[in-house]
Simulated assay, not measured.
Amino acid sequence: MSAPKPRIYILHGEDEQARQAALARLREGLGADDPAALDYIRLKGETLDLPALHDAALTIPFFAKRRLVHLVQPLAAPPLKSPKGRKAFLALLERVPPSTALVLEITTTLPPKHWLRRWADAHPEAAYQRRYALPDNLTRWIMKQAAEAGGRFTPAGAAELARRVGNDAAAARQEIHKLLAFVNYARPVEPEDVAELTPAPEHPNIFEMVDAIALGRSERALRLLHQLLQQEEPIRIWGMVIRQFRLLLLVREALNQGITAPQALAQRLKIHPFVAKKLLPQARRFPMESLETIYAALLETDRAWKTGQTDLPTALDVLVASLGR
């Protein structure tokens, strides 16, 4: 006879993509992978009351092998703010029947002594717990992920990708598969491959300089420009300025159409959600008319320095000074 399945699944940790993949596998295994399935229900902790969770967890499945109740951020539930509420919650967990799989998804790591983990440790027959942590050493993790996918990275290639994605495991996963496909899984991914396909992180002063332009602070905008010119080649700065205002124009257009969520913007513009989140407040500072005027000025500046009417650093100086007025 096979061992009984867990009734409570505690999935915690900061690696969102790994958590979601685990949840998808669980749903598929239970036959509840259709988002519209009658045997799947998703609840949010911040709006949860215990009677609603009780009813969801104790309802028998209709068609699937088991009913899957997915509770997101359970620790945000108002009843769990008090010892009495937590006691009632744990008592409810013990009453969850074998016909239900109750998934508690928590987006941070729970310490070993947390009251929920202590309960799970005391009920190993009923509870499954798994931490989905971000890697401590992203370079080594990239090389391991590539090997598991059937490809290879050189240590230098993995280090370059780690530098470009920061501590974003989800972005690293996407880039790993893209880069392995680029080399056709036939050779290791080198730093040059990463440089060609994976965007470098935006320089923070670009955002600050654009903010200063939006607020009409031309002196600060020029000061930030001069700092950038000491750190980067003018042609690279010019490319970043063009890209920043092009993205702002697209974000402003999306805002005017009622698209305000960073995730939706990221999907629409094919950019990372983190970048979309940073662009949103900037785009709100610019009316569409202002961005269209700025973009026209960028095109004129581009024409001027490419035809030899001025050099690029001077063109940037004049442009930023005029835009910041």
Rank of each mutant, 00 (worst) to 15 (best):
R86V: 11
K87L: 12
F89H: 08
F89G: 07
L90W: 07
L90R: 11
L92V: 11
L92E: 10
L93D: 01
L93Q: 01
R95L: 10
R95D: 06
V96N: 00
S99W: 01
S99M: 04
T100V: 09
A101V: 06
L102T: 05
V103A: 04
L104Y: 05
L104W: 03
L104R: 03
L104V: 10
E105K: 04
T107V: 08
T109L: 15
P111M: 00
P111N: 00
P111E: 06
P112W: 08
P112F: 11
W115M: 00
L116N: 01
R117N: 05
R117F: 02
W119I: 02
W119M: 01
A120N: 05
D121S: 13
H123V: 08
E125N: 13
A127P: 00
A127R: 01
A127W: 00
Y128R: 11
Y128I: 01
Q129A: 13
R130T: 00
R131S: 12
R131L: 09
Y132C: 02
A133F: 08
A133L: 08
L134H: 08
P135S: 04
T139A: 15
T139K: 12
T139S: 15
R140N: 07
R140T: 06
K144H: 14
A146K: 07
E148D: 15
E148I: 11
G151P: 05
R152S: 13
F153G: 00
T154G: 04
P155C: 09
A156E: 15
A159C: 04
E160G: 01
R163T: 12
V165L: 09
G166W: 10
N167D: 14
A172S: 09
R173P: 00
Q174A: 13
E175R: 03
E175A: 13
I176L: 03
I176R: 01
I176H: 02
H177Q: 14
K178T: 11
L179R: 02
A181Q: 14
A181N: 09
F182E: 12
F182H: 15
F182L: 13
N184Y: 06
Y185N: 01
A186N: 13
R187M: 12
P188E: 03
P191C: 08
P191R: 12
P191Y: 09
D193F: 04
V194W: 04
V194C: 08
T198Y: 04
A200E: 13
A200S: 10
P201M: 10
P201D: 10
E202T: 10
P204L: 05
P204M: 04
I206T: 14
I206F: 07
I206W: 03
I206K: 02
F207N: 02
M209A: 12
